[in-house]
Write a protein that binds this DNA or RNA. Structure first.
Lengths: 187, 187
DNA sequence: TGCAACATACCATTTGGTCGGTATGTTGTG
DNA sequence: CACAACATACCGACCAAATGGTATGTTGCA
């Protein structure tokens, strides 16, 4: 397999660009901003080109979600593997995944969920399923009221971050993150 | 001034119906589901009738938000007035407003924010402003890390609730609520 | 040559929005 | 009270633009 970066036609690169642009548009102009026109144009491609990679608009949005889940699973598994203490390890990994990444940038899993879930309501169900499955998997180590609050607070944190955009209350993310992690350790 | 309920034509009732239908459609089919056609039809009125009450689609969505802020302000002020302890009183009121209401039904302030903020991104800014102002107002009683976590967790809670719709992890709301309130008292 | 990766042109439908009309009120005046 | 003058609430047809999607090219790499 050749290196993708050397070929003049780079389908994988275009695909990623399309997904990135879709997310940016979703964040900036709301889910309604994700039109095939706009996304294709932003990615420097025509509609036809977009439909070559994604058979429908819904597939595009679901691609966003699929990427999210893949990345999130990987991040969480990696973080849990590095965690010596079993109790609350999933919650810590979840917090880390929410806060770390290109801190609250476009690569953030929360952002991807946010955009995809609202652009295509069917995704909400899939997210609920994923989360439920993951939670069930770590039931023995992460099923306490305090840990639940920590996870909810993490969700609320990036939600608050998204809401500000410019000129809102920006919580001290690093301090908040450490405090949440601390809560999982003293539980 | 006559009682509105006596008149045969009840514009105020129609207005409310339009707003309610807009929110329902937003919750069920995502922000994209709020089309003037669909909303008008759901409210048993024509597009022309809708545009009589709201000069534009954006005005309709902003009406949703305006209602939210009004109700939220009232609820919070009332709850704070009943609260004997000053410290954390705003946060407790915020939690109560988030959880109580027609529990996570259409009358819930969170739902209104959720829908309006995503349907029209301009509303995000206005929400950020409202929250920032309210927070500044209660800076002396509610500006601690723990209270911030409580508020964020409350946000996360109704977000989680919205995400489930059917077949997701439904947190025990009453238990969670009590636990969050407790956190504000021992802070 | 053959096939993947795009572009171009086109289409049916839906979108938010306007406009003229009408039925139903409300109000001022004698 | 009567009755004109006006305002409100709503309808129904229409519109330009944008939408998701398709069908048919063209181009470049192996």
């Amino acid at each position: 397999m050749k290196t993708i970066s050397q070929r003049k036609k780079q389908p994988e690169l275009v695909r990623r660009t399309l997904l990135d642009c879709a997310m940016r548009l979703g964040l900036e102009h709301g889910p309604a901003g994700i039109t095939v026109q706009a996304v294709a144009e932003a990615a420097g491609v025509t509609k036809g080109g977009l439909f070559h990679h994604f058979p429908s608009r819904q597939a595009l949005v679901e691609g966003l979600f699929a990427d999210l889940v893949e990345k999130l699973d990987a991040d969480i598994d990696a973080a849990m593997a590095r965690d010596p203490k079993p109790r609350g390890s999933f919650t810590r990994a979840y917090v880390a995944a929410t806060f770390d990444d290109p801190v609250l940038g476009e690569g953030n899993p929360g952002a991807a969920l946010y955009v995809s879930a609202h652009a295509e309501p069917s995704v909400r169900r899939r997210w609920a399923d994923w989360f439920a499955a993951r939670l069930e998997r770590h039931r023995e180590t992460d099923d306490t009221p305090t840990l639940e609050i920590v996870r909810l607070a993490a969700d609320g944190a990036w939600l608050a971050h998204l809401m500000r955009e410019d000129g809102g209350v920006v919580p001290n993310l690093t301090a908040l993150r450490e405090r949440l992690i601390a809560m999982t350790l003293t539980d």
